[in-house]
């Protein structure tokens, strides 16, 4: 195998003969000058049409600030997507719950939610039971992901730079703003970019949920704010007076010792509902909204109907009274006119 580094004997000779010569060696040989000139010109089609832009990373995987292959980074990304996609998240503290107890709790939660879903399907509403699960989280990473979600607000048109090179609509003469795969580029707007990291590491910004992020935590994330599902989850995981646990006759599995021992160690801390933070009482209030969003709509419509009725009656009343006053005035004037003619 030939040596990788090419030794240029001529350069060495020059260095030796002129050791104090600091200017770079310039070749004045005619033969060398012609050698550079004979570089073949680019083919004619390359001169006519620009080379299509090349994206140096898959459009769905922009480069990440932290090493993307470690578990931490992937958890961070996963928590960010959970936080962005679920408007209702319950936060629990779990104190040394055993695997068997977790199994029981998960089973009971799933069966309770499936009952709600069966009711909703009869009314023609969507079913969510399969998407609602208890998930034990890494507290610190979750806190950091929440900081990114709350404080990193990138501008719109995220995918401008990710135009596909082989897409015929991509103008080939246009400059692609971002084709390098360096994560510290300003134009990256994903949650793992360096800009997101810097926005989230600003310690002057405080999260409302910050004091809750200590100790072992678990979350239950809901894909929509559905008080029916929340109600059944609360009565299973954190029973109280408003949301009583299922009776032993109705659901004997719920009263198994493993499940009960697990539930003793599970504490509801609070909830994050559409970006707002609620404590236990607030969470129960959200769960206590009857009929969910449809119930609220019905209440609103009912209220507006009532308001509308009263408004029309009020308006009618004024018009009526105006009518009466005008009529009274007319009568009065007529009487006066009559009086004038009499006199």
């Amino acid at each position: 195998m030939p040596p990788r580094i090419r030794i240029r004997p001529r350069a060495l000779r020059v260095r030796i003969t002129h050791p104090h010569h600091s200017l770079p060696q310039t070749h004045t040989y005619a033969s060398l000058a012609t050698a550079t000139a004979t570089t073949p010109a680019p083919p004619i089609h390359q001169n006519l049409r620009a080379v299509p832009p090349v994206l140096r990373y898959p459009p769905t995987q922009p480069p990440s600030h932290k090493p993307p292959e470690v578990r931490k980074t992937q958890l961070h990304r996963q928590y960010q997507s959970t936080l962005k996609s679920s408007p209702l998240i319950l936060l629990f503290q779990h104190n040394n719950i055993k695997a068997q107890e977790w199994m029981g709790i998960r089973r009971e939660l799933a069966s309770a939610l499936r009952k709600v879903d069966a009711e909703r399907l009869q009314n023609g509403q969507d079913a969510y039971a399969d998407d609602i699960k208890v998930q034990v989280i890494q507290t610190g990473i979750f806190a950091s992901a929440l900081r990114v979600v709350e404080f990193f607000k990138p501008e719109e048109n995220i995918l401008d730079h990710a135009q596909h090179p082989t897409d015929p609509r991509t103008p080939t003469s246009a400059l692609v703003p971002q084709t390098t795969n360096k994560s510290d580029d300003e134009r990256f707007t994903h949650g793992l970019s360096k800009r997101a990291y810097e926005a989230a590491s600003n310690r002057k910004l405080k999260l409302e949920l910050e004091p809750l992020f200590a100790g072992p935590l678990a979350i239950v994330a809901f894909p929509t704010v559905s008080p029916q599902h929340l109600k059944s989850a609360l009565s299973t995981l954190a029973p109280s007076r408003e949301f009583p646990a299922p009776r032993r006759k109705v659901n004997p599995n719920y009263h198994e010792p493993a499940v009960q021992a697990g539930l003793q160690k599970l504490m509801l801390l609070g909830a994050r509902v559409e970006g707002r933070v609620f404590d236990q009482e607030g969470t129960r209030w959200v769960g206590g909204i009857d009929g969910g969003i449809d119930g609220l709509r019905a209440q609103l419509v009912h209220m507006l109907q009532g308001v509308g009725g009263s408004v029309t009656s009020v308006l009618e009343g004024t018009s009526r009274s105006i009518y009466f006053t005008v009529e009274g005035r007319r009568m009065d004037m007529e009487e006066k006119e009559k009086g004038d003619t009499k006199e």
């Binding site: 503290q93 104190n95 040394n96 719950i97 055993k98 107890e101 910050e210 004091p211 809750l212 200590a214 100790g215 072992p216 021992a261 003793q264 160690k265 504490m267 801390l269 609070g270 404590d279």
Partner: peptide
Amino acid sequence: PFSPRSKSARLVLSLIPSTAR
């Protein structure tokens, strides 16, 4: 739970072993 000073209270609970109850 929403007070930053209650951290130690919650950690006490998490220090109780699972079989203690």
